[in-house]
Amino acid sequence: MNERIMIVDDDPAVRYTVQEVLRGANLSAIAVESGRACLEELRNGFRGVILLDIMMPEMDGWDTLEAMKREGLSEGNIVCMLTAVISPSAELETLKDDVLDYVRKPFDPDGLIATAKEYLSYLRTVPEGDGYEGEDKA
């Protein structure tokens, strides 16, 4: 699998923009429109950096995170929450160990690229058999 970044956002404009910004930095990303679609990708084997929108209809970012934990799909993924609000919801408090970063909309493109590269570098150095498989050669 080449795609090592997944954008989860119900807004097609956000999905398109983030994907294009990352593509400009030679970072390949897949984009899905809902928490359910994110879970489906995870069940199909996606492991990487997940840029997860908080405010989504039906299943928001927190619900998605909790479902990931429940189904054992968290291991091997780095989750960064995306949101327009300045301070995250108190719900994050119980999921602090699972959310490594918090990226505010609107995005600063350079900051977004730096964030993605930063966390891809973490995944590159995860010891084999410790929740992540594969080596990023990008």
């Binding site: 291991e75 780095i78 602090k96 973490y122």
Partner: peptide, 14 residues
């Protein structure tokens, strides 16, 4: 640093 366990070693290396 609050983080998932599987990242401990790569975090240390970085």
């Amino acid at each position: 640093q609050h983080m998932p366990r599987f990242l401990n070693e790569s975090f240390r290396r970085v």
